[in-house]
Nucleic acid binder design. Structure first.
Lengths: 340, 340
DNA sequence: TTTATAAATGTAAACGGTTACATTATAATA
DNA sequence: TATTATAATGTAACCGTTTACATTTATAAA
């Protein structure tokens, strides 16, 4: 490993001078600047990050915590984050949560160990406010929470407008004449799932639709659970005329179930989802859903982190950004006009 | 930030002793060990990673390079890697490649800057052997290549048996009576795509099927390209009786195209894919494909890295692991018996 | 109790950078 | 040319750990 003193020696200057040209700060005589620069290139010298971190107390890396499940969802967000962050010379350190307790330990280690300069958390089922936030607040690291419902002073929280979009979807279905709309839940503790459900419930109320308990069934965001849930729902009496699945994967399972049950979608049964994953446009019939701009979400997260990085902790504000979502009307709801 | 000397002071010992109990090495008197331990807990002390890294020349982090595209694919692999690595107290630093040149710079920075202890690369379209490997070899960091065709001495290369599985798929289609099987290419420079194509071509030859150029069309792994490619293919004369798409997303697009063209799948047109993504079981008809064990791939990568981490560079061997793939027969090929 | 030996602890120099301050070289002025 | 003022460079301390080596303390043997 070549160090700064190797460079210094070869250039016959002190390490201080090399450091100066490295940070192209101060006034270094052009002649020496060039000479040292040459040698840096020649030796292919890269400063040691640990030494830098130790000195500067900055690591140029952002921690990223995300749940173990729903790989697709988070992969897109990560790409969004990464693109923006890497352009700004920052790296991403990832850690995937199994359970909340373990996650708190990880965060604590990251922050107190000086491993990261900022933190982005996607923990849709987080609950332990104190365990999660206290170390962060104490350590004055900027934080972005994605789809996370804990109260976080001086942090940026990025939320999808699940509630209104879900309600809007119920509205749409109601407009098409449906009175009995079923709902397939996502994960029990999942923030998005809960908000979507809340929108469904309030929509039901608002448009005076049936509100029986038999219209709800619990899934877990997978195609298989959507399939199974639909089979269950259609055995009930009376049957729903429409199914609102908390995400597209379950909606895809629901469509398959309808096929097996020889029900026509949307004639016998309307089915709608949430997320607008890439294959939603290619189901039969095309899936009516709500588009979630995942990359944009990632981009916003990165932007916020970067903005807060150089800010004095006391200047940071508590921000809550609610991202409006776009309904995508395809055929599976029975609507005539198709959006997009 | 609490440091080791804060602990030392409070415990009235030297930093050396604190360091000793931290690494529970050497012989520390049980009494002092306990006392110091107490204080460490009390102060919630976590050693500074940069100081550790500087001293030990180990960062407990593994670099992970992956392409900008195909988020789904890589997300699963990352989960596989992460699960294994985090259990072994290692972190993942990710970087997403835009182009090869930039990537080489990143790798160089990671390695020479002492940021990582090992590297896992997923660059299916990598070509520049020297630029990529030389710095790694020089720096004696263990390397795992996933689906990457460059020659890498002392590295572990993880490959899918794309070739044989693709050939087997052609075999299967041939058995079902197809003579004119079309192929939708994936990315032009993508390793997996090329291998799958190679298997297709050799299968065609082996089973004496038609070998006309009009049976091939170039896609880019997206549903949209699969759709478009199928439209193109079905305008040609004579039409193929089966389509082999280089991945499932394109196969899904192909199924949709068939629907639009009012062709029955599999009666008028058999369609098969590759990957076995989660929704492949829920298309109509269910998609015949090849299962790719992504998490397992990630697990193997992590395992190899960990194994090589503590090895003397001179002892590392050049390994090439070819992972056999399992065919998944569903309805879209027209087969009677269903596997899985 | 003294002495030899082993165990526990402390001291200080690394690791590879940055930077306040001291020093030296250069340019400007008289 | 001598004297300043200023620009360029060097010196050494520091960031927070680890660890070889030195020193102290405890234990065992005489």
């Amino acid at each position: 490993m070549t160090t700064i003193s190797d460079v210094a020696k070869k250039a016959k200057v002190s390490t201080a001078t090399v450091s100066r040209v490295l940070n192209n700060s101060d006034k270094v005589r052009p002649a020496t600047r060039d000479r040292v620069g040459e040698i840096i290139k020649e030796l292919n010298f890269v400063p040691n990050v640990n030494a830098l971190g130790l000195q500067r107390k900055k690591t140029k890396t952002i921690g990223l915590i995300f749940p173990d499940a729903s790989a697709y969802y988070f992969a897109e967000i990560i790409q969004g984050i990464n693109r923006h962050l890497s352009q700004n010379d920052h790296q991403i350190l990832i850690s995937s949560a199994h359970d909340e307790e373990e996650e708190i330990k990880t965060i604590n280690g990251f922050v107190k160990g000086g491993r990261i300069d900022g933190l982005i958390m996607m923990m849709p089922s987080a609950s332990d406010y104190k365990g999660l936030m206290i170390p962060l607040i104490n350590n004055k690291i900027p934080v972005v929470l994605i789809a996370c419902e804990i109260d976080a002073p001086r942090a940026t929280t990025l939320l999808l407008d699940n509630y209104n979009s879900a309600k809007e979807m119920v509205h749409h279905l109601s407009d098409l004449g449906h009175k009995r709309i079923a709902f397939i839940h996502g994960g029990k503790h999942n923030y998005d799932a809960k908000e979507r459900y809340r929108g469904y419930v309030d929509g039901r109320k608002e448009f005076q639709l049936e509100e029986r308990e038999e219209l709800e069934v619990v899934g877990n965001f997978t195609e298989a659970s959507g399939y199974q849930s639909t089979i269950t729902l259609m055995q009930r009496n009376p049957r729903p005329t429409a199914i609102f699945a908390a995400n597209d994967a379950m909606a895809i399972g629901a469509i398959e179930a309808a096929r097996v049950l020889k029900l026509s979608v949307p004639l016998d049964l309307a089915i709608v989802g949430f997320d607008d994953i890439s294959s939603a446009a290619y189901t039969d019939p095309g899936l009516t859903t709500v588009h979630v701009p995942l990359r944009r979400l990632g981009h916003l997260a990165a932007e916020s982190i970067l903005k807060n990085l150089n800010m004095d902790p006391s200047e940071r504000t508590t921000e809550k950004i609610i991202i409006p979502l776009q309904q995508v009307i395809r055929k599976s709801c029975g609507s005539k006009q198709e959006s997009v």
